[in-house]
């Protein structure tokens, strides 16, 4: 993104009022401002106006009365949510799975991008890239079907292999201790290739002259990676990492909901699946909104903290 060619005036510099100067500035750069309108409208209509709907977290929302006439109940839903006996389990599962995602899922596409970048044969690279990003287009329902076909005790390939090697079969999908592993690894399989595209773009944005200069100075392949590729990718990595941290309580409802069953609730029940069970199935819009609001506030706090930390350490930040 190169800086737009803005015509410089200095509002308030002359004797005229600031406002007139600002207006003239806007009019002079009108093309840019007009181009800004659709984007701003998008955020207003789809992001900011719906924020007002969050008031239903403090109401006993009734769809026939709407949020203007529904009764105000203060923090009732938050109290109900925080007094849920399994709340600690929900938070623990959510944070642990999120933590695993940051540790294992997040670096996977970075590694893939770096490995792909080191390939010599462009055609081979393209084929690999296409194959690994295809799973992104499958729905989680289909991915669950694959996982079931692999891990089923009755028909699964993995269990047949274990039995052929003399072991006894394991009911992977109905055991709490395997749940997080399955979630994380299927998540990596599905999204790794797609997420790598951003990092590949970041790598290709690095000026070739840097590599040439490094080669002239006798830098090895690894040194080039360490001192050119990695620093070149850092801004992209940091921004995506910060965004991921901002979504610390959002794990992707669909995937976990599909994999979850009563035997795996103890390690896999998260805020989103709880909100779905209690709210959507039970029609409790206010309670679900309260849970959503709680998640957003926690996410915002995490984002601010992480951004501060990132700025202090690497100098990179979202804002």
């Amino acid at each position: 993104m190169s800086a737009p060619n803005i015509v410089q005036t200095k509002p308030g510099d002359s004797s005229k009022t600031d406002f007139a100067g600002l207006l003239r500035f806007i009019v002079r750069n009108r093309a840019l401002y007009i181009m800004l309108i659709p984007g701003m409208l998008y955020f207003l209509v789809f992001k900011y106006f719906p924020l007002a709907g969050s008031v239903i977290a403090f109401q006993d929302y009734n769809i026939f009365k709407g949020f203007l006439d529904s009764e105000w109940v203060g923090f009732k839903w938050f109290e109900q949510f925080f007094s849920y006996p399994n709340l600690l389990r929900l938070l623990k599962n959510t944070v642990i799975i999120s933590f695993y995602q940051i540790i294992f899922t997040f670096p996977a596409p970075i590694l893939l991008a770096i490995l792909l970048n080191e390939l010599r044969m462009q055609s081979f690279k393209r084929v690999v890239q296409t194959i690994v990003y295809l799973p992104h287009f499958l729905s989680w329902t289909i991915v669950f079907g694959f996982v079931y076909t692999l891990l089923s005790v009755q028909t699964g390939f993995v269990n047949h292999a274990i039995e052929a090697l003399g072991g006894s079969s394991v009911n992977f999908l109905q055991k709490a201790e395997y749940f997080r592993t399955i979630i994380i690894s299927s998540g990596i399989w599905k999204e790794m290739g797609w997420s790598a595209i951003v990092f590949l773009a970041a790598i290709s944005g690095i000026s070739p002259s840097l590599y040439e200069a490094a080669k002239m100075d006798g830098a090895s392949r690894f040194k080039q990676f360490l001192h050119i590729t990695l620093p070149g990718m850092t801004p992209a990595i940091m921004i995506l990492l910060l965004l991921k941290i901002g979504h610390i309580l959002d794990l992707g409802f669909e995937q976990i909901y599909l994999f979850l069953n009563p035997m795996t609730l103890s390690t896999g029940d998260i805020l989103d699946t709880y909100a779905y069970r209690i709210g959507i199935l039970g029609g409790k819009y206010s309670l679900t909104t309260a849970i959503g609001l709680f998640k957003s506030v926690v996410g915002l706090l995490m984002l601010v903290i992480a951004n501060r930390a990132s700025k202090a350490t690497t100098g990179e930040g979202l804002y």
Binding site: N261, P262, M263, L265, S266, I278, L281, G282, G283, K284
Partner: peptide, 15 residues
């Protein structure tokens, strides 16, 4: 009002 409580028995039953 407590419709969600209907599903709570699944976990102990499975155990």
């Amino acid at each position: 009002n407590l419709f969600n409580l209907y599903y709570e028995f699944h976990e102990p039953a499975a155990r």
